[in-house]
Amino acid sequence: MDVITNRSSRLFIILGGFFVANALVAEFIGVKIFALENTLGIEPFNFNLFGQKGALQFSAGVLLWPVVFIMTDIINEYYGKRGVQLLSFLAIGLISYAFIMIFASINLVPAEWWLEQNATRGVPNMQNAFSVILGQGMLIIIGSLTAFTIGQLTDVLIFHRIKKWTGEKNIWLRATGSTVVSQFFDSMVVLCIAFKWGPELVGNVEPWTWNQLFAVATIQYSYKFLMALCLTPILYVAHRGIDYYLGHETSEAMKKRATSW
């Protein structure tokens, strides 16, 4: 069988490439924290949760993580948990590799003309800027990768449990249900490791209080829950497009095989 010309194999490559690319990009843009109200041009919400007050601020990575979990559900539907697990571990390996290469590049001595050139563009110390933007803290990296792994495995488990109970109907239920549950673990794990348990273990960073952690987790989870609902119609469009591309017979055979894996 020719992997390139076979439609199911080619679809897996396309979906897998988009899945890994989104996960990788989300990791690196996540270092930027943006103010949602200011971005939308509206008055600050000024939430009050667990005794914590403030505006709605998110990591830029939230733009892509909902897409990653939607992609997980699409791949899950046609290629089963083995397909999702393969791509998840591939993404984790490539993200880890990318961070190793970035840390290596940070330790390279910068050329003087490069620093001077960027200083004229408003960046006084390009080496520091490069290090701060790309060199995320080790606790954040560990927390993010651990949360991603747990979130993906949870998504696969819940997705197939719901599909087993409901059959081929109710795509929205298994997709949204699995994403909502997995995103809860994803949101909590990354914050606990990066800002609570990690700092307490290392001792050189002030750990967050539980009130701080719960407030931020609630806001981030609420956003992800809302995005999961908003992106649900895209699942139906994607399913129709994939079914048309593969053909009804092949599509149904793949869905049935995916359930048994």
Rank of each mutant, 00 (worst) to 15 (best):
A111L: 12
T209R: 05
L11T: 06
A238L: 14
G167S: 05
E112P: 00
Q127A: 12
I95D: 02
L87G: 05
V180C: 11
F89W: 15
H160Q: 10
I4T: 14
M126C: 01
W114G: 02
Y221A: 03
K255Y: 05
G241C: 05
V84D: 03
K53V: 09
F195V: 01
K81I: 06
I75W: 06
Y244S: 13
N46C: 04
N211D: 13
T166K: 14
N38S: 14
V189Q: 00
L145C: 09
N204V: 15
E37K: 01
W210V: 09
A228C: 09
Y244M: 11
V181L: 12
A175G: 09
L56W: 10
L90A: 14
P44Y: 05
P199S: 07
K224C: 06
N46E: 12
T72S: 14
F148P: 05
S131V: 08
E116M: 08
G17E: 13
D155A: 10
S144M: 11
F69N: 06
G93C: 09
W210H: 07
K224N: 08
E112N: 06
G80E: 02
E200N: 10
V67Q: 07
L115K: 11
L226C: 12
G247S: 11
A194S: 11
Q136F: 04
I142H: 04
